[in-house]
């Protein structure tokens, strides 16, 4: 078990799942471990390319498109509850970086060529059932600050740049469609503008 990195230890419930042998819900995977499994003569033999992908490869695959409806159901399900508990989706995520200070920006993207390309994917990329869409209100709400009503910065949530852009777009769309409510700026009316012509006595 020496391949387990610190990210596992930080999330006890996921760790427990791992010990039970249930590897389907693991978010972070170790890249080095994965590459050693691959046989070196892959290029020569064409039939080894078409072999069944291993369990870990399947877990990294992100080519399957999950519909929003599934994601909306997932956020209400017991599986979601078990994975995240009472925490927000991004709350328990920790970025990996060398030194004391994290880089100003998060990584550009976690998914390259349809596969997870990192061992510590961002909170949205790591769980394939979290789909950013304007109808997925429960998910979007987790990224909006209750104090300011704005989308929380990636420096706090750790979401990768690509997902953060998607998040901003879907929040804007959700507000446009009325899925997300917000505090509308107050409009003060000048009554004299509307009633002055008829009755000269100003209100």
């Amino acid at each position: 078990m020496s391949v387990i990195n610190f990210a596992f230890l930080a999330r006890p419930n996921i760790f427990r799942n791992f010990l039970k042998g249930n590897t389907s819900r693991i978010f972070s995977l170790n890249t080095t471990n994965y590459s050693t499994e691959e046989p070196p003569e892959v290029q020569e033999a064409p039939e080894t390319v078409t072999r069944e992908p291993s369990e870990k490869e399947k877990a990294r695959d992100r080519t399957k498109v999950i519909p929003v409806e599934t994601s909306i159901r997932y956020l209400k399900s017991a599986a979601y509850k078990e994975t995240y508990g009472e925490y927000l989706v991004w709350e328990q995520y920790r970025r990996n970086h060398k030194g004391m200070f994290p880089p100003r920006k998060t990584r550009k993207t976690c998914i390259r060529k349809g596969m997870l390309s990192t061992g510590n994917p961002c909170p949205v990329c790591r769980d394939e059932y979290l789909v950013l869409d304007y109808r997925n209100v429960d998910l979007l709400k987790q990224f909006i600050s209750p104090q300011s009503g704005e989308v929380i910065s990636y420096s706090k949530t750790g979401v990768c740049q690509k997902r953060h852009q998607e998040l901003l777009i879907s929040v804007e769309r959700a507000r446009d469609f009325g899925y997300l409510t917000f505090d509308v700026p107050f409009r003060e009316y000048d009554y004299s503008e509307y009633y002055n012509e008829k009755n000269e006595s100003k209100k």
Binding site: R175, D176, G178, P185, R187
Partner: peptide, 20 residues
């Protein structure tokens, strides 16, 4: 005007308004 959009928000279209 703060908060006013140049294009009409989709929220005011009948189907979305009914949902709201």
């Amino acid at each position: 005007h703060p908060g006013r959009k140049i294009r009409l928000p989709r929220m005011f279209e009948p189907e979305h308004l009914n949902r709201c």
